[in-house]
Amino acid sequence: MTAEMRRSSGAFSVPIKNIERELICPICKELFTHPLILPCQHSVCHKCVKELLMLNHDDSFDAGSESSVSGSPRSRVPSPSMERLDRLVRSGSISSPGWRRGSVTPRVTTIPCPGCQHDIDLGERGISMLFRNFTLENIVERYRQAARAAVAIMCNICKPPNQQEATKSCMDCKASYCNECFKLHHPWGTPKAQHEYVGPTMNFRPKVLMCPEHEMEKVNMYCEVCRRPVCHLCKLGGSHANHKVTSMSSAYKILKEKLAKSIHYLISKEDQVRTQITELDRLINQTEENGQLAERQANEHFERLFETLQERKTEMLISIEQSRNRRIDQLKGQVQNIQFSLFI
């Protein structure tokens, strides 16, 4: 670990330890994930609220089954999350009056608050009536960033005691590398050279499609208004709460049919486009031939014109020369006559 990392670790260690217990969900005992605010102002993870509702609903089903079909040999196998919640209920961590396994008429939309031990009636809307605790969610995210920054990420290829700090992380290999190891395992000219790499990180994205707004949630719905995939949290209290959504399978079929129709339309227009391209090529060739013919004809006309002008020039010069000579001869004859008359 570098000196900068050690200073960062020392600067954040005390605040992190002091605030960590405030950022843990009282049910799953882990950092809050998409916390929801209960009417009693306590916060619980979204998944934990769903599990509480499912557990309460299962309790109602079990109570009804025991009263109607007593002594049935069939038993339901609970999930690990249900077993954890069941243990919490039995231990008294989330117990409250009116919420008992043996209750004959349990309220399905009522959950116990693990903080104040009061029953919370969610009404007909269920979880959709609860609001996201964005402030707490931002604090948890900053806590995670501070915790990641306080720990150096080491190269997964180097071995101690010469292990180096990572400078890159390959998202395809899901491993971190120092400069030398990255050059060795991702040489140029190989398929691995095309892998996507980022700065050192421990958060390798999964191969499944995840919600860009809620990074830990998978997309399972398609918003018909925004024309994009969304997760259940986006529909629950996000920007797509009042939008019309459909399942991913239905959206896939509809979009596939539209794409198939578009491709069929393009294929049907292919012959027409090819014919138009052929006609344009013919017009281009014809235009070139016509241009070359006009150029040759213009050159021939100007050459004949130059020849005619040259002939006219020669004739005119000869005529001027003859006229000048006759005039000079006449003038010379007059001079001689005058001189002859003077001597007589």
Score class of each variant (00 low, 15 high):
M1N: 10
M5T: 11
K17P: 02
N18I: 10
E22K: 12
L23S: 05
I24M: 10
C25M: 05
C28W: 03
E30N: 13
E30H: 07
I37C: 06
C40S: 15
H42V: 04
V44H: 01
C45G: 01
H46S: 10
C48S: 07
C48M: 04
V49S: 02
L53M: 08
L53Y: 02
M54G: 08
D59A: 14
A63W: 03
A63E: 00
S65V: 14
S68I: 14
P73A: 04
R76T: 12
D86I: 14
S91Q: 11
G92T: 02
S95Y: 05
W99V: 14
G102Y: 08
S103L: 14
T105F: 14
P114W: 05
G115F: 03
Q117L: 13
D121Q: 07
M129Q: 11
F131C: 08
Y143A: 10
R144D: 05
V151M: 10
I153N: 04
I157H: 05
K159G: 00
P161V: 08
Q163V: 07
K168S: 12
C173T: 01
A175V: 06
Y177A: 00
Y177V: 01
C178P: 00
L184Q: 13
H185I: 04
W188T: 08
T190E: 06
T190R: 00
K192L: 14
A193H: 13
Q194K: 15
G199M: 07
R205V: 13
R205H: 10
V208A: 11
M210Q: 11
E217W: 02
V230E: 01
V230S: 00
L233W: 00
L233I: 13
L236N: 04
G237T: 04
A241H: 12
A241F: 10
Y252L: 15
I254F: 12
I254W: 08
L259E: 13
L259K: 15
K261C: 06
Y265I: 13
L266R: 14
I267Q: 15
I267G: 05
I277W: 05
D281H: 14
N285Q: 14
L293R: 15
E295Y: 07
E300R: 09
E303K: 09
L305N: 15
L305I: 10
F306D: 09
E307F: 06
T308D: 12
E311G: 02
E311T: 03
R312E: 15
T314F: 07
T314P: 00
T314C: 07
E315P: 00
E315Y: 07
E315T: 09
E315K: 12
I318A: 08
S319T: 11
I320H: 12
S323T: 13
R324G: 06
R326V: 07
D329Y: 08
G333T: 12
V335Q: 14
Q336M: 09
Q336E: 13
F343H: 14
I344E: 12
